[in-house]
Structures are given as structure tokens and as C-alpha cells.
């Protein structure tokens, strides 16, 4: 059974609790929760394991003052230092190595334009650690998932590029076009590779 963090109505992060223990916390359906393995904070009602909390009678929770229940947790950057990541929470994957590689590798493959995707990845990846240290765990998670997204896009495009190239080479060889002809066609611009 996973142990969950949640963000309470005042934007503070609390945890960890087992789903059983969460029952006695003031969890609502739109309360944001997080546990190991999740990419980002999710609404409690969207987490299958937490269904047991809401399966009970709906009148289970004490009524909330209107102002408080309206306050959505402002967890992007507003979290004061100290409230953030409890010590046992590991830093989200930073994606720095991956995004740097995604930036550098295209230069080997003459597809340097794709490096821009890697650079976007680096920009997000470099925020992960500083946000984490500042205690903004949710912000750090968000940066991590953004960095991962862009790095993966860059990687797939890079792989597609190499596959395309290999396919073209195989096709050319298969059709037995003479090298001299291809040379004329491709080097017509006068540029070297």
C-alpha cells in the first residue's frame, strides 16, 4: 500500500499517510495527492487506491468554512520555504544528463536544429534541483515532467531521423542507383557534407 502526501486547503503539504489514515484527514475529491511513482500531483478522486475514502457516506466530513474550501492550494511557487519536501521525499528525476545528451547528440548526426528541443529540456531540467532545495516540491515535480517531456520528444525525433537515414541508404543500395548519379543529384548544390 502506498503512502501519500497531500496538499491541504491552506496550501501546506502534509504526509505521509496510508489510504486508511487519509480517511481521518480532511481529504476532498479535488485535494491534490502524490505518492511515489506518480509523475505529478493528482486529484484524490482520480487515484484508484483512494476510492475507499470516498466510498463512505458523503456526509462524512465536517463542514468547511466557505473561504477555506474555496482556496485552491497555490503550490507552484507560493509555498514558503520549510513547508516543502519532507526529508524522506527523494528529488524528482532531474533529466539533466538526458537533456544535455539530447542537445549534444544531434551535432553528430547533422540534425543540429533538433538541439533546440534538448535546450528546452535543459531549461526545465535545471530548475528541478533549485526548486526542490527551495522546498517547492510540486514545482520541482512539474519542472521534472516538463524536462522529461521535451527530452523524450527530442530523443524520438533523433531516433526517427537515424532510422529514416538508414532506410534511405538501404533503398538507394537496393535500387542499385550508381554512385556517380547520386553524387550528381545530392552534391549539385556544391556543398560538402
Amino acid at each position: 500500500m502506498n503512502r501519500y502526501f497531500y496538499i491541504d486547503s491552506e496550501g501546506k503539504q502534509k504526509g505521509t499517510f496510508s489510504p486508511e489514515e487519509l480517511k481521518s484527514e480532511n481529504i476532498k475529491k479535488d485535494t491534490l495527492v502524490w505518492t511515489q511513482g506518480m509523475n505529478e500531483w493528482m486529484r484524490a478522486s482520480d487515484v484508484a487506491e483512494l476510492d475507499i475514502i470516498f466510498a463512505e457516506s458523503t456526509g462524512y466530513y465536517p463542514p468547511q468554512p466557505a473561504a477555506q474550501s474555496a482556496a485552491q492550494p497555490a503550490f507552484s511557487s507560493a509555498q514558503p520555504a520549510g513547508y516543502g519536501a519532507p526529508q524522506q521525499q527523494p528529488m524528482p528525476k532531474s533529466w539533466l544528463i538526458e537533456s544535455i545528451l539530447a542537445t549534444v547528440l544531434p551535432f553528430l548526426l547533422c540534425s543540429s536544429i533538433f538541439s533546440l528541443l534538448g535546450i528546452i529540456g535543459i531549461v526545465h531540467a535545471s530548475k528541478v534541483e533549485s526548486l526542490y532545495i527551495r522546498g517547492d516540491y510540486a514545482g520541482s515535480l512539474e519542472a521534472s515532467s516538463q524536462a522529461g517531456k521535451w527530452t523524450k520528444i527530442a530523443m524520438w525525433i533523433g531516433i526517427a531521423w537515424v532510422v529514416l537515414w538508414i532506410v534511405v541508404v538501404v533503398l538507394i543500395i537496393a535500387f542499385g542507383v550508381s554512385m556517380a548519379n547520386i553524387g550528381d543529384i545530392l552534391n549539385g548544390s556544391g556543398y560538402e557534407i
Binding site: 551535432f107 553528430l108 547533422c110 543540429s112 531521423w161 538507394i172 554512385m179 547520386i182
Partner: peptide, 20 residues
């Protein structure tokens, strides 16, 4: 050999990119 991919940056701008 003409089989290797050309640098699109060089073709378009005429400048060598850092990978050329």
C-alpha cells in the same frame, strides 16, 4: 560519399553549424 545526410542548416543559411 553522397549517402550521408547533409546539414540542413548549411544548406539553408550557407554557414557551417557547430556540427558540420
Amino acid at each position: 560519399m553522397p549517402l550521408f545526410p547533409k546539414c540542413p542548416f548549411l544548406l539553408v543559411t550557407g554557414y557551417e553549424c557547430p556540427g558540420c
